[in-house]
Structure formats: C-alpha cells, structure tokens
Computed example of a mutant assay.
Amino acid sequence: MTRLQFFGRCAVAAVVAVACAAPGPAAADDGWVVTGPGITSGISGIAEVDPGRGSGELLAVHDNKHAGEPRVSRLRIGAAGAAEVRRLRWDGPRLPVDLEALSDVPGRPGEFVALESSGRGYHLRLRPRSVRVVREFTVPGVAAGETGEKGENYESFALVRQGGRLIAVWAHRGQDADPAGLRLARLEWPGLRFGVPRSVQVTVPYPSERVRHISDADITVTGRLVTAAASDPGDDGPFRSAVYDLGRVRVGTDGEPSPYLRERPVRLGVFGGHKVEAVACGADASTAVLGTDDENLGGWVRSGDVCG
C-alpha cells in the first residue's frame, strides 16, 4: 500500500468521533479527510511512520501551547476509509510549546525530529503509546531558551540524505512583505552538530494577502525542494494555500548543500479553504501527504501528486 492508497473519500474516527465533513469552507474540497475537530486538532507537521514500507501510518504534531492539549498523534486511514487517530503521550523533561514541523530521520526507523516555532528541536523515538525525547537542540542562529533570531518564526524542518550526507532544511515562515528565510546545512547526526547554514530569501505570488511564504518544506530524495504557502486571516479563515517547487538542493564537492532556486516558484497545487502547514513527500518522490491547521475548523489530511 502506498501513501496515496490509504486515503478514502470520507472518514469516521476509530478512536474519537470524526465526521465525514464539517461545516464551513473546509468541507468543500474533494479528497480531504478530517482528523479532528476544533482548534487543538490542527496539524502543523507530518511524517510517514515507515517511509517506503507502505504501512499507511502517519505521525503528526500539533502547535498547542497548554497542558492537557495534544502534541503528537498517530494517524491511519483504514481499508474502509475510517480515520484512526491516536493521541500519544509526550515523554520528555519539558512539554513543547508550538510544535510546527516534523521529519523522519532517514535510515533510522522509528526516529523523528520535531521543531518548535522558536527553533528548539527534539530528537524523538516512537513508542506504541508515546514519543520519547532522546535529545534536544536548537537550530543555528537561535540561542537556547530564546525566541527565533530577529523575531523569526520557524514552521518547517526536514531531513534528507544525499551523497552520504544528512542534510537539514528549515525556514522562517515570513509574512507579507517579510520574506521567508530558507536555511540549509549539513547535519552530523551522532552529535547533532550543524554545518554552516546557507540561506536564501523566498516570496511567493499566491496567496497574496496575509501570506506565510513558507508554512512547511520538504526535500525529495532527488533533491527537489517542495514548500507550502498559506494565508492566515484568523481562526475562522477563510484560508488559502498553495504548494510550490522552488528548485533543487545539491551537495557540492565540499560536502555542503546549496539551494538552486528557480527564477520564479512553480505552483504545483492550490487548496482553497485550507491552511496547509504540513508537507511530506513520499519515498518514490512523486506522492505527498498534506496536513492542515484550519484552527476552529480542525485538522485535515489528503494525498497529492505535488512532489514528482
């Protein structure tokens, strides 16, 4: 089963009641599956549990800030199109605040990295009913315990292995006239040590108002840089999103990654009524899972051919 195959046309939760559709504009788009109602169910990052193995399971993070609110969920769409949503316990010395991104760790099954908007990251190990914090870190340019550099707000983090190197990409989301700031660096996994980041600024043409130029990012195994952009006018929307091909990431002869951006971003898909904050490209570099944080309209997922 591929990541595309486990999506049905509607969903009924096996753990908590999830309707096939919800009131408001979010119910209008074909292919979307609701994963939870209300503002605490929004999906801000998503990753495949067993990349390339076709298990059909996803791990999602939520950008909640208060005790008692979910931080991580395990998702599966059953054969009948039923959405199974299991909230997982966070097992670590501190409860995270505003988790905005999630990536699997290539070559290390059951291990993930989650990132807060502040730039604090967590190396996680998946357990049957919990995620355990193995290590904490901060991305370059952010001092421990502080908010993002120059007021930056990070909404993406992804890992890919290229040329024998583990490459990390993360980005300040930007807002309207403030461009997104995309960073790339080599990552030495044993010590969680980053190389010197290389950065570029990014703006997108759509959405055009109240836009976050990068609301998530992923790199395919072939080096394609796929990002989402989203409009966020408030907790009730209306939301708009698009997915873009920004260009390529290549590892040079010095072993360091560099971004090679297109002159203009290529728009791969438009999603009205949703605020896409999670993009995870499949192991075959063609399919993707998209996740949304639609605030009062809850969390949603769908598949899409936006990574090929």
Rank of each mutant, 00 (worst) to 15 (best):
R3W: 06
C10K: 14
V16N: 12
W32T: 01
I39N: 13
I43R: 04
A47T: 00
D50A: 14
P51S: 07
P51H: 08
R53K: 15
H66K: 15
H66E: 15
A67S: 08
P70L: 04
R71T: 02
V72L: 15
R86D: 14
R89A: 13
W90Q: 06
P96G: 01
D98V: 02
L99G: 13
E100T: 04
L102N: 06
P109A: 15
E111L: 11
H123F: 04
P128Q: 10
F137H: 07
T138Y: 08
V139N: 04
A144D: 11
G148D: 08
G151W: 01
Y154V: 01
A171E: 03
R183S: 15
L184R: 10
R186Y: 01
R186G: 08
W189P: 05
G191T: 07
G191K: 02
V196H: 08
R212V: 02
H213W: 10
R224K: 13
L225C: 10
T227P: 01
D232P: 02
S241N: 04
D245K: 06
T253Q: 11
E256D: 12
P257H: 13
R262N: 09
R264S: 13
R267D: 04
L268R: 15
G269E: 05
F271W: 05
G299L: 06
S303N: 10
C307V: 05
